[in-house]
């Protein structure tokens, strides 16, 4: 499982750009075959700079409150490390280009695309995935609201949407219709379940407000 990065890389080499692009544009083509610039004199003087890779190195990621040790190449994204190395598969790999939101996770309290953060960059930061939401068999209000409002069809975008909704409500506890529309703008649902999702956010906002005013633990 952990060697998925190489396997995938072979499968994903693009047909078009590989073809003659490297031949056509001298820079990229040459860069692949020559060793790093003989600007080594400059690099030799760069004391105190940690250089890792290109091979695997050991890192630790704080995933949902638990430190997890793994070995990855620098090119492995946080999303792939979670899914392929740590078996935390809630975040989904769909576009892999910072566009669809299926990989959304919360990093140090901010919603990000897991596909566009390198795993090694996420060291020392707090990573929250959809797996962190339910506790003691109880769904998080956002999750419950998705169930109640039928806010999914195929369900593949759902974990990303749930994290985006949680982040939205953490930052806008009483969102307006515009807040909801724009706040979830980074996630796509190809089944088009947006009506259910909007209803779910509204329900979750109300539920979370009740919990807060009761003096209970603030969900999330």
């Amino acid at each position: 499982m952990s060697s998925s990065d190489e396997r995938r890389d072979e499968a994903e080499k693009p047909v078009v750009s590989r073809r003659n692009f490297l031949k056509g544009t001298g820079v990229a083509g040459v860069a692949l075959t020559i060793p790093l610039a003989p600007g080594a004199e400059a690099q030799a003087g760069v004391a105190g700079v940690t250089v890792i890779g290109p091979e695997r190195s050991k890192i630790t990621l704080n995933v949902n409150g638990t430190p997890r040790a793994l070995e990855v190449e620098p090119r492995v994204t946080l999303l792939d490390a979670l899914r392929n190395d740590l078996d935390v598969t809630g975040a989904k790999r769909v576009c892999d280009r910072a566009t669809c939101g299926a990989c959304s996770v919360i990093l140090d309290g901010k919603l990000v695309y897991g596909c566009s953060v390198l795993a090694i960059e996420a060291q020392g930061r707090k990573i929250e995935t959809v797996e962190s939401l339910a506790s003691n068999g109880q769904l998080h209000p956002v999750q419950k609201a998705f169930v109640d409002n039928d806010a999914q069809q195929c369900g593949f975008c759902t974990p990303g949407f749930v994290m985006a909704c949680k982040s939205l409500l953490d930052h806008h506890p009483e969102p307006s219709a515009d807040d909801i529309r724009l706040g979830l703008g980074g996630n796509l649902c190809r089944c088009g379940t947006y009506v259910g999702i909007k209803a779910a956010v509204a329900q979750a906002a109300t539920e979370m407000k009740k919990t807060r005013t009761k003096g209970g633990r603030r969900n999330g």
Binding site: A28, A37, V49, I52, E73, R75
Partner: peptide, 26 residues
């Protein structure tokens, strides 16, 4: 994605020294 080495400088002087002499290398 091709393999690459990953440098994490903490000053701008270090960063500049780690950058390539030609576009695309780094």
């Amino acid at each position: 994605m091709n393999k690459f080495e990953y440098a994490s400088p903490t000053t701008k002087e270090q960063a500049v020294a780690m950058l390539g002499k030609a576009w695309g290398e780094t």
